[in-house]
Design a protein around this nucleic acid. Structure first.
Lengths: 211, 211
DNA sequence: GTCTATAATGTGATAGAC
DNA sequence: GTCTATCACATTATAGAC
């Protein structure tokens, strides 16, 4: 990929700006600047801000969450799959920390583009994660591998545990600063913290559902 | 309160619009319409959109999270306090479902108004929740009431479990629709689901940390 | 395809009458 | 204090030359 096309440059810049600033906060000028071209080109390639946004949302959603269902391979034990999921899901979010909040915000705008994309992705198999998770969980419940839990509630809990820190990071870092100051600690080592987070989530869940 | 003042009407409308549309999505015209007055009055009372936003953020943040620390009363057992917290925190969010995402989004805008308000509230005692939670948790750990856990990680987990569903509700309702259709279920009873959520969270945590 | 210049619109803010 | 009318500016979108 020696020569990246103008269209690709625009899309790449648009992903950055839309995911970081949101639908309303994003400005066409900033996207143009980041792509190294001018505003007119954005409209030449994508007609309008709205159409560009739709492309960005669909691509971001599918690329981020499209492949994760393979973690729930029926041939490995549920507990191990869960551990893998926590590990890989958090790694993915950590590499794209703005994306969960971006998707949540756009889905919250009510019936419209984002919700339509989600529904289509659920139907056409581009977003198999929830069903793969629920199927493996139901099998583990049937086989009495784990304590009885409500499948939907449990799924929300696992995903929430993985995602929430990244969404609310500014809130927690400020609380940490207060705590660390009180403890005369060595400050905040973020990579170490992320690894500890994985372990804390798995420990909580594992002990929460083991028989 | 027979006669609500114009300033109060504006603030009430501004809270609604800002929390639902965000800082950039909110329009002064919509706030004016909702308050039943015209745009000029907004500037007469608050000078600028920015100043009005600051008032709204501070008020919303303190009113929503300012009083919750009293749940962690040292005289009651930690497990019971945790159960109360889950119950009351979720009730509060359920009554103001847009507020967590609003606060998270504004804190994510980087150093600025929202972060400043948070830091002040942490210092001046308007936001005692994190410290109250951590103190009670540390005591429970010292007394060997619960399994050994990392206090900060555990706090994030509890809050995330309570908040995440409300933040990502549009995502999950769409998944539910798919699941319920497959199961020929009677559809989605939201109030019942919220009560089940409280129970699911407490069960997971309780089993996750009990000795 | 790419650019500059400009139109068209939306929105925050103000002036001035009452 | 409240209103209408208007300004000033930012931003999306287009026209037209190269």
């Amino acid at each position: 990929m020696v020569n990246i096309s103008t269209e690709e440059k625009i899309l790449k810049a648009a992903v950055e700006v839309f995911t970081q600033k949101g639908r309303h906060g994003a400005k066409m000028q900033e996207i143009a600047d980041k792509a190294g071209i001018n505003k007119a080109m954005l409209h030449y390639y994508f007609r309008s801000k709205e159409k560009l946004y739709v492309k960005v949302f669909r691509e971001v959603f599918v690329k981020t969450f499209g492949g994760l269902h393979i973690i729930f391979d029926p041939d490995i034990p549920f507990t191990k799959a869960l551990e893998n999921f926590i590990d890989q899901y958090i790694d993915k979010i950590d590499k794209n920390p703005h994306i969960p909040l971006f998707i949540i915000n756009e889905l919250g705008e009510g019936a419209g583009t984002a919700v339509t994309v989600l529904q289509e992705a659920l139907k056409n198999g581009e977003f198999k994660l929830p069903m793969a998770f629920l199927q493996m969980l139901n099998k583990a419940l049937e086989n009495n591998e784990i304590r009885k839990v409500d499948p939907l509630q449990f799924m929300i809990s696992v995903i929430g545990l993985c995602v929430y820190y990244f969404i609310a990071e500014p809130l927690f870092t400020n609380v940490f600063m207060l705590v660390y100051k009180m403890e005369n600690s060595g400050g905040f080592d973020r990579p170490k913290f992320i690894e500890q987070r994985k372990k804390a989530i798995f420990d909580l869940i594992y002990n929460g559902i083991k028989k």
